[in-house]
């Protein structure tokens, strides 16, 4: 079966100009401008099957948004192949556009000065949604998201979280087959983030929608995605299940202990565990191989005055941070896999 989304060596190049500061710089750039070509996305290939939820990760400026905009047909690739549901997005077929949705956490498609409901009614016309479907979906989504009372409030009066929920509803009214979520939870409080994640999962379960999501919050990725795609400098750096991603830096677990008094940091038990102490020597973070986790922890709990004991909740957060600070880790193991540079 053909994948619902497949891209082959997808590339997008942007051109920009240099300008030095000040009046002289203005004059200089008036006479001759030095152009800079930058590959925002560089030979990006991957396949997505129907019903998958993919997390697209990478630092700011890595090319995630550019990629999303190529997927939605907003910008045209410089080279490479892209096929979504059998369409080439840049052709912008009506049928293609009717079956996709784009949500951008940083931008709004709702009209600022009127209630969200008015925008929804306009979207209903755009996407030719029947009245019955429309009412049913509004009812269902607004109940799930808890914004039923806010449908008739001016959008500018809504909080960021409430507005984002409305944005989600606006994008999903036409029951799209593929959804692109570009940082949907950015700037939201924890409860709103959680609501939105739950809603997306629900929507996915009911409709078996294919979803691509970018986010800087690892909690989003952890909750929603099974598969992760990492993009660095426009290039794909990792593509695989989350469980594999967590093990990029090795299979040790991070564990932290808090004690009620200062401890002897030179004791034998801390050796070879990358012990990282706080100033008062009351908190330590250790890296323990998976197979000896039980044994070591038990020993510490038994002999030392432990008041708190934590294992790492989201290993991907640590992996992501380490990779962003040391991108050479990925480059070093380049060529070790086919598409997946680091396994």
């Amino acid at each position: 079966m053909q994948s619902i989304i497949s891209s082959q060596k997808l590339t997008k190049e942007f051109q920009s100009y240099k300008k030095e500061p000040g009046f002289l710089g203005t004059l200089k750039s008036f006479v001759s401008r030095e152009s800079i070509r930058k590959k925002a996305v560089d030979e990006f290939s991957f396949n997505i099957e129907e019903g998958e939820i993919i997390g697209l990760l990478g630092p700011n400026g890595a090319g995630k948004t550019t990629l999303m905009k190529m997927f939605t047909g907003i910008i045209v690739p410089s080279s490479g192949e892209l096929s979504i549901m059998g369409h080439r997005p840049s052709d912008r077929d009506k049928q293609f556009r009717k079956n996709i949705a784009l949500v951008m956490g940083q931008k709004s498609q709702l009209w600022w000065d009127i209630p969200a409901m008015d925008s929804f009614l306009l979207l209903q016309r755009f996407y030719e949604v029947s009245d019955a479907d429309f009412e049913e979906r509004i009812e269902e989504m607004s109940t799930l998201l808890g914004v039923k009372e806010l449908l008739n409030v001016h959008v500018r009066k809504l909080s960021l979280g409430e507005r984002m929920k409305m944005e989600l509803m606006a994008s999903l009214l036409h029951n799209p087959k593929v959804i692109f979520l570009d940082e949907p939870t950015i700037g939201l409080d924890l409860v709103a983030q959680e609501n939105i994640r739950q809603f997306i999962l629900d929507f996915h379960r009911k409709n078996n929608t294919t979803i691509i999501i970018t986010s800087h919050y690892m909690a989003d990725v952890n909750a929603l995605c099974e598969r992760l795609v990492l993009i660095f400098d426009g290039k794909k750096a990792f593509d695989g299940p989350i469980s594999e991603f967590e093990k990029i830096l090795g299979s040790e677990k991070n564990v932290s202990f808090t004690f009620d008094s200062s401890q002897d940091t030179a004791a034998e038990i801390w050796n070879d565990r990358d012990a990282d102490w706080n100033e008062n020597k009351t908190v330590v973070e250790l890296r323990i191989p998976e197979e000896s986790l039980r044994e070591v922890s038990l020993e510490i709990l038994k002999y030392l005055p432990v008041t708190e004991f934590n294992t790492e909740k989201m290993p991907i957060e640590r992996v992501m941070k380490t990779l962003m600070e040391n991108p050479e880790i990925l480059r070093n193991c380049e060529g070790s896999g086919e598409n997946m540079l680091c396994r």
Partner: peptide, 13 residues
């Protein structure tokens, strides 16, 4: 300028 055009372009009209 604001990139709002993105939403316009994905509409099926």
């Amino acid at each position: 300028r604001t990139g709002e055009l993105d939403f316009t372009l994905i509409k099926p009209t």
